[in-house]
Design a protein around this nucleic acid. Structure first.
Length: 504
RNA sequence: GGUGGGUUCGUAUAACGGCUAGUACUCAAGAUUUUCAUUCUUGCAAUAGGAGUUCGAUUCUCCUACCCACUACCA
């Protein structure tokens, strides 16, 4: 039995979105569970769509998520370009492998499974327009290839001459006539397609001396000994072509699994960049600044923990078959299996995403959270000893979803309120309340004693306490008065109360 | 248009062909709390429609509807 080897093969045409990260994650989990290898390969065979920085973004995203490739990166964390023990198949960037594809394309031509096509883009466009106006769809296959400009219709001398003279020819796959391709997908089961509905896909382009996705993908998966191809559902329509390509080469083909798409939270259609901007949640793992300066938010910058992000991604389309929802990467590796992956697209739910982060925030130690809070305090001009911050974090972590919530929850432990919420003041800052609060404050030394004092006199504790709270925090909600008083001290409590008396 | 895929509460999902269709998020109500949040309890809410197979269908088959993907010298 072959060692399990899977790959994540993104195209550097922009930032990796969360659906892509999920595909990478599932590949990684399958590999790790089987004790196999997870390979990263960059499919940049379309020179026109290359986006600077996209490759680095992909690598950084995977690193942030803890999805570590066994193969594809060199010691410095860049895409490996030279073969060595760790990266025997380098380079892992297809544009740097261009030399190896042409001979495979020609091998197919010699075997009669492919041919040279000399049609120009304009000619094909004309054919398409003509078909369309006749209410039909132009398909470059057995039905039409006999009337088009390709090596199937020319003598050898003519072909040789055009191959030499022209620089815009292609190699096309010769799709068999009326043949049913029977396929098996790990997630979708048995699928059959008749080749008459398929077209003669371009495999190799003379213009830029590069293969198209289909050829490069099959050749590399074969050379890299990939055993399972796990990719997005948008590739399902190309599966027959890929089956046929493996057969044409006479290679053992890997198993295939086509993952359901990630859909937008409301309405229909797949999740796109715009949905996130519109609905206030990130669709990218990391913040991305496009070449035109447009900034898209990222889960990392929005305050998500990477393990929470990985967890929520894992649960989008897969379930463990048990009631467990919180999984560490190790647990995911243990529990994951492709046959528990659903077939239908999963709508992303931002509320659930936040819930995951909340759970992960609670699991973090006070030490770690304090160290994350310290810089935020500093930004707000607050210096506090780490021990104090740790105590505060212990008090507020249950009330937060993100570390970035901490300041909003606890700022009044560090500075006096500059203003008071009007509605709350109207409700609680009443002369009789103020009077009672004042007396209780002056005659007691601690919060506990104060509470006892108020209760002993049978004063309305809620009204008096909230009156004090208003003076301390500027509103009628927040931490327990006793906790607030402990942190800011009796003197500051009195100061704030007097200030409120002056201003309200 | 053609080809392929899909369809269980609003969302994510569970349910060898067999209990009252379960769980989580959201939402609502109540309890707890000096307030808010937390926590706890309770509640709302689904098998797209129609045939068929079967003692019995969410599950298997067919038809319809709707949704999605693909239909490039893009991946």
């Amino acid at each position: 039995m072959r060692k399990t080897r899977v790959r994540f093969a993104p195209s550097p045409t922009g930032p990796l979105h969360m659906g892509g990260v999920r595909t990478a994650l599932y590949n990684y989990l399958v590999a790790k569970k089987a004790g196999g290898d997870f390979i990263l390969r960059i499919e940049d065979t379309d020179s026109h769509r290359f986006v600077p920085g996209a490759e680095e973004y992909i690598i950084e995203s995977l690193r942030w998520c803890g999805i570590v490739p066994d193969e594809g990166l060199d010691a410095s964390g860049r895409l490996a370009e030279v073969p060595d023990e760790r990266n025997p198949h380098a380079p892992y960037r297809q544009s740097q492998r261009r030399g190896i594809y042409r001979k495979y394309a020609e091998q197919l031509v010699e075997a009669g499974c492919a041919y040279y096509a000399f049609d120009t883009a304009e000619e094909l466009e004309k054919e398409r327009a003509a078909a369309e106006s006749a209410g039909q769809t132009f398909i470059y296959n057995a039905a039409t290839r006999g009337t088009l400009r390709n090596s199937l219709n020319m003598d050898a001398a003519e072909v040789a001459r055009l191959l030499e003279e022209r620089t815009d020819w292609t190699v096309r796959f010769k799709m068999p006539v009326n043949t049913v391709v029977a396929m098996d997908d790990l997630i979708r089961g048995h699928i059959e397609v008749n080749t008459d509905t398929l077209d003669d896909k371009v495999l190799w382009k003379r213009a830029d001396e590069l293969p198209t996705y289909h050829l490069a993908n099959i050749v590399d998966d074969h050379l890299m000994e990939i055993t399972q191809v796990i990719r997005g559902e948008e590739w399902l329509p190309s599966l027959p072509l890929h089956y046929l390509l493996y057969a044409a080469f006479g290679w053992e083909r890997p198993e295939f699994a086509h993952l359901p798409l990630l859909l937008k939270p409301v309405g229909n259609g797949k999740l796109s960049k715009r949905d996130g901007d519109k609905m206030g949640f990130p669709v990218f793992p990391l913040q991305w600044t496009a070449p035109d300066g447009q900034v898209s938010r990222g889960y990392r910058e929005d305050g998500y923990f990477p393990d929470a992000f990985v967890n929520l991604l894992a649960m989008l389309g897969w379930n463990p078959g048990t009631e467990q929802e919180i999984f560490s990467m190790e647990e995911l590796i243990q529990a994951f299996s492709l046959d528990k992956v659903g077939k239908s697209g999963a709508k992303f739910n931002p509320d659930k995403a936040k819930w995951f982060n909340k759970e992960y925030l609670r699991m973090r130690s006070d030490e770690e959270l304090a160290s994350l809070f310290m810089p935020i305090l500093k930004e707000n001009g607050v210096e506090a000893p780490e021990g104090t911050v740790r105590e505060i974090v212990a008090l507020i972590k249950e009330r937060a979803t993100f570390v970035s919530d901490f300041w909003n929850i606890s700022w009044y432990l560090f500075k006096a309120p500059a203003e008071y919420v009007e509605k709350d003041a109207a409700k609680f800052w009443k002369p009789e309340n103020v009077e009672m609060a004042h007396e209780a404050l002056l005659n007691t030394e601690s919060a506990e004693a104060m509470e006892e004092y108020i209760r002993g006199r049978e004063w309305p504790i809620g009204k008096v306490m909230n009156c004090i709270r208003l003076a301390l925090t500027g509103s009628s909600s927040g931490l327990a008065i006793a906790d607030i008083m402990r942190f800011i001290g009796r003197e500051e409590v009195l100061n704030r109360f007097h200030r409120a008396e002056e201003r309200l």
